[in-house]
Simulated scan of single mutants.
Amino acid sequence: MIQTRNDELRSYQVGPVRAELRELTTSDNREGLLEGTPHLHRRMNLIRIDKAVPGTAQVYVHDLDGIRADAEKQVDAWLPRETVRARLTSGWTPEGIAEYGHTELSVMWFQSPAQDPYAHLATILGPLDWTSLARFVPFED
């Protein structure tokens, strides 16, 4: 896991909002895979994503529609080797919220180990709309 200190947070522009990267993790996308095919691998990842995403508020999976489309047909290309997850926060809060807190969004994608996850995150976040994707998290006492 890659972590940064609070005074070294990376900031990203997400639509009209500035967000700070709080956590970025990478994992081997094929860990535990003993045998199979690229098609089966995509289907297994979809099953994991479908189980995890509904229970996790405000998670955006990059290129999920493309992964779903590939899983519907016979595919010979493996998904990239790494699964990357990033958690971002922002001081922006939706209108009408009187509580103190922040908004949060988690982003997940697949990439090759040679790619820079920070640069790839910037390209993913650029076209997203934070105000429609992020969830409000109230500060706790």
Rank of each mutant, 00 (worst) to 15 (best):
M1R: 03
I2V: 05
T4Q: 10
T4G: 05
R5P: 02
N6R: 06
N6C: 02
E8A: 07
L9A: 10
R10F: 05
S11T: 06
S11A: 05
V14I: 10
P16G: 05
P16F: 00
A19P: 05
E20D: 07
E20Y: 08
L21N: 01
L24I: 14
T25S: 09
T26Q: 15
T26G: 15
T26D: 03
S27C: 07
D28V: 01
D28T: 01
N29C: 11
L34C: 02
L34A: 08
E35C: 07
E35P: 00
E35Y: 09
T37G: 11
T37K: 11
T37Q: 12
L40N: 12
H41I: 04
H41N: 11
M44T: 14
N45C: 11
L46C: 07
L46I: 14
I47W: 12
I49E: 10
A52W: 12
A52E: 11
A52D: 09
A52F: 14
A52V: 09
G55F: 08
T56Q: 13
T56W: 09
T56L: 11
T56V: 04
Y60I: 06
Y60V: 10
Y60Q: 10
H62Y: 10
D63P: 00
D63H: 10
L64M: 08
L64W: 06
D65V: 07
G66V: 04
R68W: 06
A69C: 02
A69H: 08
D70E: 14
A71S: 13
A71H: 05
E72F: 05
E72G: 15
Q74P: 00
V75K: 13
A77F: 14
A77I: 15
L79H: 07
T83A: 12
T83K: 13
V84K: 03
V84L: 05
V84T: 11
R85M: 15
R85C: 13
A86C: 11
L88Y: 06
L88C: 09
T89F: 10
W92S: 09
T93S: 11
T93V: 15
P94Y: 06
E95Y: 06
G96E: 08
G96A: 09
E99L: 09
T103S: 15
T103P: 08
T103Q: 07
E104A: 09
E104W: 02
L105Y: 01
L105H: 03
F110P: 00
F110T: 03
F110K: 04
F110N: 05
Q111A: 05
Q111G: 01
S112M: 05
Q115F: 04
P117W: 01
A119H: 04
L121C: 05
T123W: 02
I124A: 04
I124S: 02
P127L: 02
P127W: 00
L128H: 05
T131M: 09
T131Q: 15
L133Y: 03
R135F: 01
R135Y: 01
R135V: 06
F136K: 01
F136P: 04
P138Y: 00
P138R: 03
P138E: 01
F139V: 01
F139N: 06
F139S: 03
E140P: 00
D141T: 06
